[in-house]
């Protein structure tokens, strides 16, 4: 289990912000083995800073990160896979050599690193490109190499900063499949993203961060349950004034009247609707992650 507790980080301010800039103001969440954790938040919310602290690239002012009950150390991080926000690869090094090199730096023996590299290149659709230098690849393909670098040593934990940005839909699916496999093998995966539908589709749990604070964290179902769900009723050609006295709002498109409400007696609403006209739709709508997100950071 990866536990992140009350991380705080202030950056030294420049001339414009003499007091410094608070980037993290108590970030904390927990990721269990085999859990895919989506880390979302507006630009500048503190996602990257958090991940850098987890990876030891930055030092937190206070707070702690622990892995399997012990404070996270250098040796543990060697077995983590990390994809930084700003992509970094040796531009003049060949694709396969580069992935193998990082595998070996993580302590893999040469043949093992080679095998893992070939497998990953195959999975990520880069096999034909393995002999090219990185600078000869398109941005999306460089991104795939970066992912391969994060995955090559079969990491115990994956920390990926916006891994899906810049990928085409096929590559998104390929990566999603790879990540789901690793997850099923018991690896906790944390990734940040601004593609909320993707997060909603892939993740078991989500953390929403805003201005350096966690505003929500938990399973997607929990977050939904916490939101007040909306009842939506569509009535065809109802009698005028049918919704008078009912809670919520009515919108009209031609002869189709839609009532949306977060409260009230649903049975009473249904009776009134049936009496008023032909009921085309009656149901509780779950908010999308996008709606939850907007609500949370508002």
């Amino acid at each position: 289990m990866l536990e992140i507790n009350e991380l705080r980080k202030r950056f030294a301010g420049g001339p414009d912000a003499p007091g410094g800039k608070v980037a993290l103001d108590g970030i904390g969440f927990t990721v269990r083995p085999g859990e895919m954790y989506g880390f979302v938040g507006a630009n500048g919310a503190g996602k990257t800073t958090t991940m850098r602290i987890v990876m030891g690239v930055l030092q937190a002012d206070s707070g702690s990160v622990s892995w399997q009950g012990r404070p996270l150390g250098y040796d543990d991080r060697q077995r983590f896979g990390y994809m930084p926000e700003e992509r970094g690869l040796y531009q003049k090094m060949r694709v396969a050599e580069q992935i193998e090199y990082f595998g070996r730096l993580h302590g893999m023996a040469a043949p093992v690193a080679k095998k893992a590299t070939d497998d990953l290149l195959e999975r990520l659709g880069l096999t034909e490109r393995k002999g090219e230098t990185v600078q000869a690849l398109s941005l999306g393909n460089q991104q795939r190499v970066q992912l391969a670098v994060a995955l090559v040593h079969d990491p115990e934990v994956l920390i990926l900063d916006e891994p899906f940005s810049g990928l085409d839909p096929i590559a998104v699916d390929a990566l999603a499949t790879v990540l789901q496999e690793r997850c099923r093998g018991g690896v906790p995966v944390i990734f940040s993203s601004h593609q909320l539908e993707l997060v909603e589709r892939l993740c078991d749990s989500v953390g929403i961060v805003s201005a350096g604070r966690m505003v929500a964290t938990g399973t997607v179902e929990d977050l939904r349950a916490a939101e007040s769900n909306t009842l939506r009723v569509v009535v065809r050609d109802p009698a005028p004034g049918w919704a008078d006295g009912l809670p919520g709002t009515v919108t009209v498109h031609g002869d189709r009247h839609t009532l949306r409400t977060a409260g009230g007696d649903d049975q009473e609403i249904l009776r009134r609707a049936v009496k008023a006209g032909r009921v085309e739709h009656f149901g509780v709508e779950q908010p999308t992650l996008t709606e939850i997100f907007k609500e949370a950071v508002a």
Partner: peptide, 17 residues
């Protein structure tokens, strides 16, 4: 500078000291 500027150090330093 190549490693620092291109941020390769971020990954390198999560695997070597």
């Amino acid at each position: 500078v190549e490693e620092k500027g291109s941020r390769i150090v971020e990954i390198l330093l999560s695997s070597v000291r």
